[in-house]
């Protein structure tokens, strides 16, 4: 399973988000591959799931995969509640 995290510059926030998701997923027993990128690179990227901060996620509506929008990037609970159901769903699909 590959998750792409997206922020404005692809240089900090997206990487922080990816590390959070990987740490949360690991706590649930899932290994997640991921890449942190900027908005321009995210478009058209092949992956299973995209996670972006909320002001950017609206730019990704045309992507063929689910895009999860996070309002508070410091809030582990919000990230866990939004991302884990999608990871569990993807893991069932294989």
């Amino acid at each position: 399973m590959k998750i792409v995290t997206v922020c404005g510059m692809g240089f900090g926030t997206s990487l922080m988000l990816l590390l959070e998701i990987q740490s949360i997923a690991k706590g649930h027993g899932f290994e997640v591959n991921g890449e942190a990128v900027d908005l321009g690179s995210a478009k058209g990227m092949s992956c299973d799931l995209m996670v972006a901060s909320s002001e950017i996620s609206s730019e990704l509506v045309d992507e063929p995969v689910e895009v999860i929008s996070i309002n508070n990037l410091l809030d582990r609970n919000e990230i866990e509640q939004k991302v884990m159901p999608a990871i569990q769903k993807l893991s069932k699909k294989g």
């Binding site: 922020c7 404005g8 510059m9 240089f11 900090g12 926030t13 908005l39 901060s53 002001e55 950017i56 309002n71 508070n72 990037l73 410091l74 809030d75």
Partner: peptide, 22 residues
């Protein structure tokens, strides 16, 4: 310039912004 070009991506949480550039 980053803020003007790309928008409020630097707002990471309610009431908190982390401006930065490369």
């Amino acid at each position: 310039k980053g803020f003007q070009d790309i928008g409020p991506y630097i707002v990471v949480a309610p009431n908190i912004a982390f401006p930065h550039a490369r």
